[in-house]
Structures are given as C-alpha cells and as structure tokens.
Design a protein around this nucleic acid. Structure first.
Lengths: 357, 357
DNA sequence: ACTTGCGATGTAAGCGCTTACATCATACTA
DNA sequence: TAGTATGATGTAAGCGCTTACATCGCAAGT
C-alpha cells in the first residue's frame, strides 16, 4: 500500500469528484495537494498552527477556505482519540433550573471548541444506563450527571471507560466522582430554623419525589432532622411527595390541609411546587403569609415577581453549569484533577413567611 | 499489509492489553477472535442481526456482554458515513417553550438510537454560523434550526454539506428547507380581531425583538396588519420591542403607559413578557382585565394558574419537537422527503381580556 | 570546516469500524 | 446427477484523519 495504494486512493477520489459530483467534500489530502504540502502539515495547521511556518500556514488556510473544507469529526476522533464533545445526562429539560445549568454548561463548552450531547433520563435510573452507555459509545470526552444516585451499571460504565465524569447538584463526602453542587439538606435546615424562629410549630412539606433522587431526599431530610432537633412533630402525614408541576403543588397543599391540625408553614421541594401551593391557597381564600407561610427552592426568575414574592433558596444553577464545564475543560487540557466543590445556596427571605396567626 | 499487517496489529494490541492495562477496550477484532468469527460477522450481528445465523449471533452477543464491548462511534461513523446523531441549534434554552421542543426532539431521537447535539445561538446569526459548521463537522445526520432567518453562510453550509435540515417554529411558502411550525402572524391576527371585537380601539404591543427573528416579526406584523384592516391607529409608539424577561415585560408596559392615550389592550410577543406586563399592572394598581386587557403567546404551563388566567396562544412545542424528529428519522431511514407542516396554534381565551372600561 | 541541535516538513502506519466482493455449503431445479 | 440459485461467512480495502518517526536544512558551537 505504498505507491499503488496512494494512486488507488487518488484515482477513486478523482472519479468521485467527476461523476459523483452531487457532493464533493474535500479531505485533508485535497487540501494538501492544493497547497502543495503533506497531509501532516495540513493537520498541523489545523491543530497546532504554531508548529508550522507562517508561509505554509497561510497557504493551507487559504485552500481551506477556498475549497470550503470541513474536517471530519469522526476521522479526527478516531485518529486522536478525542471527540471534543461532552455529554450531559439530566433528569429533565422541562425544569428551568436544569435548563439553565445545561445552557451554561453548553456555553462554556462551545466557547472552547467543544460540543454538548444531551440526553434526558426522565428520572429513570434504568434508562439512564442506556443513555450513559450511548454517550460513551459516541466518544464523549467527559460526562456530566445530575446527583449521585445512579445504577451500579452507570458507575461500572464510567469506571471501565475511564470517561471523566462529574456529578452536579448534590454534595457528599468522598463522592465516587467529583461533585459540583450545594448542600441540599443544609438549605432546608436553614429554612426550618427560620420558620421555627417565627413561631411555627406545625411545619409541613411538599417534597419532590425522593426515591432515587438524592437531592430531593436531602431536602426532605433537612426538614425532618431540623424539626426533630427543635423537638417538633414530624409525622409522615405532614409530608407529601409530588412530581414536578403546579398542579402537583396544588394537590400537595390539598392533602396537607385535609388532616386535622394542618401545618401553618409549608416547605416545598422546589419553586414550581411552591407556586402550586400558592395558587391553591389563593383559590381557597387562604392568605399568604397571613394564614400560611410558604418557602420554595430554586429561585426561579418569576418568583421575585409574585405577590407576595416567594421566599426561597437560590440555587446557583448557571454557576454550577459553567464551573462544571470549566473543570472538565481544564482536566481535558492538562490533566488537572476535577475538584469537588460546594456552592453556597443562600436563603432568600422575601414575603411568603410570617409568624403564624 | 496482509499477514504482516494483521500480525502487527495483533501484536500491538496484545502488548497494550498486557502493559497498558489501565484501560482495555475491546474492539470488534477482540470480539471476533473470542467468538471465533470474522470481524464482518461481529459487525453484522451488531447492525443487521437477521443476516447472521442464530448460532453465531448468540455466540457473538455473549462475547460482547462478557467483554463489555462498546463500539466506537467514531470508527462507526467514519466507516459508515452515519453518526446516528442529530443537531439542534436553538436561540436559547432559558425559554421553557424551546426547552420543551428540544426535550421532545431528544426523546424521539433517543428512542430510535439517535443522540442529540445541542448548541445555543443566543439569537446571534453570526455565532450561529460557527455552531452550524461545528455540528456538520461533528457529522450530524440532520439538523434542526429555529426559524428561517439565517445568515447566508448557514444556508451555504447546509447546501454544500447536503445535511438534511429542518426549520421549526416558523411558516413560509416555499421555504428553503422543510419547515415545521405554525402561522405566527395568523395567530396574533386572531388575537387582535378578538380585542377589537370586544371594543378596543387602542391596542398596543410588547413584542419580542424582531430583528433577525422571523417569528417575532410575523407576530408583530400580524398585529399591525390587523389593526390597519380594522382602520385603527397603528403608530410605532404603540409598539415596543423587548428581549425575554419578566422585567422586560414590566418595562414594556411602563413605556406604553408613558404616552397620552395609552392602549387599553396589550398583545405580547410571548408569555413571559405578558406576565411582566401583568406584574407591572398589578403593582401600579391597574386591574386586569378591567383597566387593561393582556394577551400572551406560548401558553406556558403557569399561565393557566395565574389570577386572572392569561389569555394566550397555545404553541404546540412538544408536538413540533416530536414531529421534527420523526420526519428526520423517516428521511434518514428510507429517504422519505421531509414535508413542511403547519401546526394549529389555537387561541386560548381565558380571563385577561374584557371590553375596555 | 565539522559536528550538533533544532525547528520545519514529509512519510506512512494506524485509529476501529463497515461493506463490496469473494467464497463456500447447501438446497433446488430439471 | 450436474447446474445453479441462495444464504451465511470471510477477506480486506478503505473511511479521513493524527502522529511517531524519519528527514532535511540551517544556524550555532568548537
């Protein structure tokens, strides 16, 4: 495959150029020939321009634009073992807070020549396995997952592929992979302290679904433990778990109100549930915070405009997305290990809490 | 490169297996050897299992799972000229309506073995060029764009790469690429008819930024033309254009109210702006719809829970995302041409409109 | 003048797959 | 029984890049 091989290639290519004309996609070889250099030089111009003399560099670049050359990502990935892509597996995009994180992640990647592959797990750990497998097959250089609750196969896949992975949104000591998130439990803990400080004794919660969701679980635990610490009742009937919609929030409040001795304050697993609670309260003629205190979690943009403005926890979603991308990029660039990081998730005191009636 | 070549490969691989042990990633060849078949058979088992005898099929599959084999997407893409990925270029992910469409698009792709690459253009046509180029370089089998306003270079890139592309959200006769969307102008036209029918003579608009955005432009034109058709005043001071935030909506209302003869009804370019208008009206003590009628566009989930519930246009975002993926998948599977499609975008009459005071 | 060293360039061997084509049994046809 | 489709399998040539290594020229060191 020396002279004969090359000729074969060129002959075929020349043929394609003439007959198969619908699509002529120039390759490195075409550029090399056009610029009168070797393919290695073309590759160098594209990848480490500094190692090529200015003269040839300009010549090659001219041909690249003249012929409209687009390098083949597949060939590049195959030869270099780097795809310049990163994958993100998220529970849902229909949650503004994740969408924001993903958008920030994508922006940082794009600014550095990377492209993002996204896949939505719908909170399903079994599906997630297939998604992670697929992303690894696609050759992503790194992976972003949400939380630390994952199927064993996911960990195995990450382990055996040696694909750098980082978990966001959560926080844990000695996590299996680096973790960029915040302390979900501490956040709700602070909320309860505040509520108890206002005089509330009957605190309820409309939590997110905690099964298979370490963030939701931590938030619920934060509430439970703090309630106990204050010596307050913390029965299961004060806790309902709901998926993610305004209607779920409404339903949550209805259920909490159905029992005798209903809570005077409700902590919510996220802002959407909190808004649902607020809507339902409004429709039932309950005034907030007069009759009922409500606290959310996420600080969605709309919450500050509500009347009353929702007291909530500010989740630094964009910062996490950006930081994750940067950590990955650094790691990929020079091997810098990815360090776990705990972001502050400050309590935003607004207008939906007050002393109980 | 016959016997010698192969031996060379095997030798290298064997060496890697022993020394370089940190990561041993089996290849088709490893599977082939382990199963006692040729690499072609392994490939067939993976891609068209029906063409292989059950006996060998099972044998190969057993080795695949035993060795934890993950095919290399890059090699596969390079050899087959199909990456099994599709790209989406969207203006922003921080708009629930796009996030929903993207999520639906992704779900349909994933269900069919495809993976989605996403890139956010931030409404910047120049940036978009680079994004489209990159996606094409990555070898996406198809592309989803939003709207039909794009830089010439984008069209050129699509044209010369022969990458199937579809535009969503918009509508146009004889579009350059298939278009799955709805009639933005007709929608706001209907809105104005309704408002005028209620007796409004002074109708204003808080539009989205129309420059470089055919959807926003069509919505605004729908309002303008209908106003003229009814013989009503349609001056530029009745129109303000704003980006996408609640605050922008508030600002929009403030500006519209700053002039003498302020509008009695306001059509908004999207629901976020509409909510901003509602918040500002509330803070100014204006009652809706008593003092001011407001209409949104998108039908975000929250809008029906607002008080009063927002009258708006229902944008079939999930349906568009799903349909786009399916059309692309069909096209990729058997060449079925992608047909343009106009989705209904029904007017949802709720509680924010009434006859003027 | 004669190494040395170094930066710029070329050579060619892969990267891990897919697939056209060749081969070979096997089962039909007549 | 010879001839021929037919289906299953193997062979090996690429797909379009990157990169280790070889080569070459030239300035600097002795």
């Amino acid at each position: 495959m020396t002279a004969a091989g090359r000729t074969g290639i060129s002959a075929r290519r020349a043929r394609r150029r003439r007959h198969n004309h619908p699509v002529f996609k120039p390759t490195v070889e075409d550029i090399a020939v056009a610029a009168g250099v070797s393919t290695a030089t073309v590759s160098r111009v594209l990848n480490k321009p500094d190692s090529v003399s200015q003269f040839l560099r300009d010549k090659v670049r001219a041909e690249v634009t003249r012929l409209g050359y687009l390098p083949s990502g597949a060939a590049r990935a195959l030869a270099s073992n780097r795809s310049h892509t990163a994958g993100a597996v998220i529970p849902t995009l229909n949650n503004a807070i994740f969408a924001t994180a993903v958008a920030a992640f994508e922006a940082a990647l794009t600014n550095n020549g990377y492209t993002m592959l996204v896949t939505v797990s719908s909170y399903d750990h079994i599906h997630e396995i297939a998604h992670v497998r697929r992303l690894i097959e696609r050759g992503v250089d790194a992976l972003m997952l949400v939380g630390l609750d994952h199927h064993d196969d996911v960990w195995r896949l990450i382990e055996s592929s040696k694909c750098p992975a980082v978990a966001i949104w959560g926080h844990q000591d000695n996590p299996p992979i680096p973790c960029l998130g915040f302390d979900n439990a501490a956040a709700t803990c602070g909320v309860v302290d505040h509520l108890v400080g206002l005089g509330h004794r009957r605190v309820g919660m409309v939590a997110g679904v905690t099964e298979g969701n370490d963030r939701a679980r931590a938030r619920r635990q934060g509430v439970e433990e703090t309630l106990r610490r204050h010596g307050l009742v913390c029965t299961s009937r004060r806790f309902v778990e709901k998926p993610y919609s305004h209607q779920d929030g409404r339903d949550g409040l209805s259920e909490l109100l159905a029992h005798g001795e209903p809570p005077t304050a409700i902590v919510c697993g996220n802002d959407v549930l909190a808004m649902g609670v607020m809507f339902e309260a409004r429709d039932r003629g309950l005034s907030i915070p007069g009759d009922l205190s409500v606290v959310g979690f996420d600080n969605l943009p709309i919450t500050e405009h509500l009347s009353p403005a929702l007291t909530t926890i500010d989740v630094p979603s964009a910062a996490i997305g950006t930081a994750t991308a940067e950590a990955i990029l650094h790691h990929l660039a020079d091997g810098t290990p990815i360090a776990s990081r705990v972001f502050p998730a400050p309590f935003l005191l607004r207008q939906t809490t007050a002393a109980p009636a």
